[in-house]
Design a protein around this nucleic acid. Structure first.
Length: 410
RNA sequence: GGAGAGGUUCCCGAGCGGUCAAAGGGGGCAGACUGUAAAUCUGUUGACGAUGUCUUCGAAGGUCCGAAUCCUUCUCUCUCCA
């Protein structure tokens, strides 16, 4: 099998391929241009979104040429696949704004330099708004619409689900638009492969069909497993909500902690998907004699480094040490600067530090024995923290086992 | 357009005049056990100036000493028929 393709199989990405042998042959012959799309319906990607882009990274390393399609046009519509509800239609400006952020985030995983590193394929960001927004409806129906069978579209799983709950016509159209994207990218860039999540299978296959009917060559589709956690839940959700890549929404410290706390059974699986670590090296972590916690630290460090950069990753490691093992530099811990005045009630203090959604909730935590100040457990919610509690001007608050906040006393 | 069913706290789902901040489950949070894991067990789960007060049962009115529960109008969803 083609080397690049094999990497994706070996790392556990691949769910399905339209024609593995033919695709492998094509990739053997030379660099293949391939694409993956994302719809800019949110301000930031989350970890569930980036799986295909990690795959993109690997293919790029073998000289294949990635096209990252930002769905500035399709994002205005919404993909019904697998959704149970109609997507909100966002204003066009918001879509454009989101698209910009997403492009920035992708740069951490895929190299978009004008002159890529030796051996790498040149990557390009494209936006389907360029050809979708001013599409002529009648022409589109004549050229593209005639090739689509409604009967067939109704058999797609994503559509079937939505038929029960309601599906608007514009969403139903999504598949035509995505197929048209594939066709346009074939024409403009000689793009022959589309990669994406398993939920994209139907859309990808529809695009391949369209290209053939339009007189193009056989094109390919490669879908990736929906990454599940060992407990069967979808990857990328945490108590704090989706694990976003934008540091303003989900801090690098929390991001690191998310990976630090994955289930034992997921560690090497995630290393294969979400890091660039060598497969041989990952294998060493499968050895039961390896301390699983070291493996998790490594995983967390590697992923954080890719997404937030080396400096932030180091800070997260240092903060974790300070919080959990008492060494390391407390200055990298999540910090809040505030004045205690003559002294502050513990509940008010925790609330001011953002360690709970409401004072009532914090009261429960305190009363239940889940709160501590400078390592000392406090169970009385009337307790007053006065400035003399500070050591070197800082106080470490802890709520539960894993939530730390450093207070810098003004 | 016609006929039914229904909108309850984060989710599912009971409640059908006072004892309802609302059963039960899920999820979340906290405690114990641990390894910043999983599983398990326990507690907790509207807010606040906290033995009280305020807001919540699709929306607005009304009846009543008293409403999530009854009446009216509106609204949204689902099912069946055309």
């Amino acid at each position: 099998m083609n080397e690049a393709l094999k990497v994706l199989f070996d790392r556990g990405f691949v769910k399905d391929c339209t024609n593995t042998d033919a695709l492998s042959d094509l990739m053997d012959k030379g660099p293949v241009t391939f694409y993956c799309g994302t719809d800019p319906t949110g301000p930031s990607l989350h970890v569930g979104h980036i799986v295909p882009f990690f795959a993109m990274h690997h293919l790029q390393q073998f000289g294949h040429k990635p096209l990252a399609l930002v769905g500035g046009g399709t994002g205005l519509i919404g993909d019904p696949s697998g959704k149970t509800e109609m997507r909100k239609i966002l204003p066009a400006e918001q879509i454009a704004e989101n698209a910009k952020n997403i492009e920035k985030q992708l740069r951490h995983v895929v190299n978009f330099d004008d002159v890529p590193p030796t051996g790498y394929g040149k990557a390009t960001v494209v936006n389907n708004a360029d050809w979708l927004v001013n599409l002529n409806y009648i022409e589109f129906l004549r050229d593209v619409g005639k090739y689509f069978s409604v009967n067939r579209m109704l058999t797609f799983e994503g559509v079937k689900q939505r038929l029960e709950r309601g599906l608007s016509f514009i969403e139903f159209n999504y598949q035509l638009l995505q197929s048209y994207d594939y066709w346009m990218l074939y024409k403009k860039y000689d793009n022959r492969l589309q990669i994406g999540g398993a939920d994209q299978w139907g859309n990808i296959v529809a695009g391949i069909d369209l290209i053939q009917r339009m007189g193009g060559p056989e094109c390919f589709g490669l879908t990736f497993n929906l990454i599940m956690r060992a407990d069967g839940k979808k990857m990328g959700k945490s108590e704090k909500g989706a694990v976003f890549l934008d540091p303003a929404i989900y801090s690098p410290y929390d991001f690191y902690q998310y990976w630090r706390n994955v289930a034992d059974a997921d560690v090497t699986k995630f290393m294969k998907i979400f890091t660039f670590m060598d497969l041989d090296e990952i294998k060493t972590y499968e050895n039961p004699s390896v301390n699983i916690n070291e493996a998790k630290q490594r995983l967390a460090y590697e992923v954080t480094k890719i997404i937030h950069g080396e400096e932030e990753a180091e800070k997260a490691v240092s903060a974790a040490k300070a919080a959990f093992s008492g060494s390391g530099d407390t200055s990298n811990m999540p910090t809040v600067e505030l004045s205690l005045g003559e002294g502050m009630n513990i509940v008010d203090l925790f609330f001011a530090a953002g360690l709970g959604p409401s004072k009532t909730e914090i009261r429960r935590i305190v009363t239940g024995g889940g709160a501590s100040v400078n390592g000392e457990k406090i169970t009385d919610f009337r307790f007053t923290v006065d400035p003399s509690c500070a050591k070197d001007g800082e106080i470490i608050l802890k709520s539960g086992k894993k939530n730390f906040k450093r207070i810098l006393v003004r």
